[in-house]
């Protein structure tokens, strides 16, 4: 069994009249990239700030590497790299000075700083901006600089709050590459995002949060499998197109059918065996099926289903 790097126990945070995080129990194992997904105001940032030791929970506790964050915050901070959803830069510092400052704040000795800063700048592809002032950097560069800052003390666990927000597609790909590189370096990463598609590509596990509650968690596969979710199905027939549509519409799990030139698009709600049933029915009715393609169920639809059901959209 792998080491659990982060564990939250009934984590609850209540602001005056909003319950931002509600009895959240979460476990992140060593080496995982844990995707933290939720709509605006779901409580992602609040949870991450509590884990980083920046906010006291109303009740419940967080353990990083088995250490209680509220008991020994300074000890825990050595293991955590935190990148918030804003930049936080000083306008009168150069890129290398910026990193050197945080190296100093992390208690790294002076003689190690220069090589450390150079290697980090290389990692985030900012070596050419070493002597530029921080406020002259583009948004994407600032974001990468902030990532470098969160890595300065070589933490084993990274908390990244929407590291890809506001980036163009190219910068997103770059950010993704850097994250993959970090994962191969053995870092455990907690990353939040709205862009589910991207998360499903790089994450090993996923947790879906809605109104402060963790409504689903597990590996990407598990999460999407566990749900009876709506999916799409593409069927190609050589003839008898109209008859096929009629047959399909009689099946209760099918919510919609549209057809054109031998291609039939079907909306289905159900599990894997539902698809098998549909195929069997078609064949039994003598429809000449050429191809039968369930579309890979996207995380997106799981997400939509999980978050729209409960309390609905509150903003």
């Amino acid at each position: 069994m792998k080491n659990v790097v982060v564990r939250t126990e009934n984590l609850t945070k209540r602001y005056k009249n909003t319950l931002a995080v509600d009895k959240l129990c979460m476990e992140i194992e060593e080496g995982e990239i844990y995707g933290f997904v939720g709509a605006n105001g779901a409580g992602k940032t609040t949870t991450m700030r509590i884990i980083a030791g920046l906010l006291a929970p109303t009740s419940g506790s967080v353990f990083v590497d088995g250490i209680d964050v509220s008991k020994k915050p300074l000890q825990v901070k050595k293991h955590i790299g935190y990148m918030p959803d804003f930049f936080g830069v000083y306008d009168d510092l150069k890129v290398s000075e910026y990193l050197n400052f945080y190296a100093g704040m992390q208690g790294i000795e002076k003689n190690r700083c220069d090589t450390l800063v150079d290697s980090l700048l290389e990692l985030v592809r900012l070596t050419h901006k070493r002597d530029a002032y921080v406020d002259t950097l583009s948004r994407g560069m600032k974001q990468r600089l902030c990532l470098a800052r969160s890595l300065i003390h070589d933490p084993k666990f990274l908390i990244l709050d929407e590291p890809a927000s506001g980036l163009d597609p190219r910068a997103r790909v770059e950010m993704k590459e850097i994250l993959m590189e970090l994962a191969t370096m053995g870092k455990t990463i907690l990353i939040s995002s709205h862009i589910l598609h991207e998360l499903s590509q790089i994450c090993t596990s996923i947790g879906i949060i809605d109104s402060g509650r963790l409504v689903a968690c597990g590996s990407v596969r598990e999460v999407s499998d566990r749900m009876s979710h709506s999916g799409k199905l593409k069927i190609k027939v050589s003839s008898k197109e109209e008859e096929a549509v009629k047959v399909l519409l009689e099946i209760p799990e099918i919510k919609g059918v549209s057809s054109a030139a031998g291609m039939i698009d079907v909306d289905v709600i159900g599990q894997d065996d539902t698809y098998a049933d549909i195929l069997r029915t078609l064949v039994e009715k003598g429809i000449p099926v050429i191809s039968f393609q369930p579309q890979e169920s996207s995380l997106e639809s799981v997400f939509m289903q999980l978050t729209e059901g409960g309390n609905g959209n509150d903003n």
Binding site: P84, F87, G88, V89, M105, Q106
Partner: peptide, 14 residues
Amino acid sequence: ERQTLDLMLVTATP
């Protein structure tokens, strides 16, 4: 106001 306070507080500096 510059949002750098949190960045200081997450470091090992008490």
